Computed example of a mutant assay.
Amino acid sequence: MDPTLARADRLVGQVLGEVGSLPEVFVELEVNFFLLRRLLGVRTKGSEKQGKVSKLAKGEILMLNIGSMSTGAKVIAVRNDLAKLQLTSPVCTSRGKKIALSRRVERHWRVIGWGTIQAGTTHDVPPSPI
């Protein structure tokens, strides 16, 4: 592999392996999630309490961290503690993996909770031409 591809952390979160040896590639995820009660890292004025984390809303854009990979996701549906998310870029991962959920608050991404991958829609990987 050409070393220029790996400079400036351009390959962070990417995986490389033989076809069939890697986990599935997902384009949509169903996630069992848990939201924090309060926002972390948000400054408050005077004696104000930290802001509460609101529930996930349909159509909302989130940032997901899966291992070292960061990707955007749009909330398609929410029911109790289960959310269906459409990813902005495909992610190679497996069911049962832990993820971090972040929301944009005052122009910064703030962690609002975490979850576990339950299921999802996979992307077909073409077989190797060799």
Rank of each mutant, 00 (worst) to 15 (best):
P3W: 04
P3L: 10
T4G: 08
A6F: 08
D9V: 06
D9S: 13
D9E: 12
R10H: 11
L11M: 15
L11C: 09
L11H: 06
G13F: 02
Q14T: 11
Q14V: 10
V15P: 02
L16E: 11
L16S: 14
V19L: 11
G20D: 05
E24Y: 04
F26A: 05
E28W: 00
L29R: 02
L29F: 02
E30T: 13
E30L: 09
E30C: 09
E30Q: 13
V31L: 07
N32F: 07
N32W: 05
F34M: 10
F34I: 12
L35K: 03
L36R: 15
R37T: 11
R37Q: 13
R38F: 08
L39F: 05
L40E: 15
G41D: 10
G41T: 05
V42G: 06
R43E: 13
K45Q: 14
G46R: 13
G46D: 09
S47C: 09
E48V: 07
K49A: 12
Q50Y: 05
Q50V: 10
Q50D: 10
G51S: 11
K52S: 11
K52T: 09
V53F: 00
G59N: 14
E60W: 03
E60I: 04
L62K: 07
L62F: 00
L64M: 12
N65W: 01
I66W: 01
G67S: 13
S68W: 07
S68D: 12
S68V: 07
M69D: 06
S70P: 02
S70R: 15
T71L: 15
G72N: 01
A73E: 00
K74D: 01
V75E: 03
A77S: 15
A77Q: 14
R79P: 01
D81F: 03
D81T: 08
A83Y: 01
K84Y: 01
Q86Y: 03
L87E: 03
P90A: 15
R95P: 02
R95V: 10
G96P: 08
L101M: 07
L101G: 02
S102W: 03
S102L: 13
R103N: 05
R103K: 15
R104E: 08
V105E: 05
W109D: 01
R110W: 04
R110P: 02
V111I: 14
V111P: 05
V111D: 05
G113S: 08
G113A: 08
I117Q: 02
Q118L: 14
G120Q: 04
T121E: 12
T122G: 02
T122N: 06
V125L: 11
P126A: 15
P126Q: 14
S128N: 13
I130T: 10
I130K: 11
I130E: 10
I130C: 10
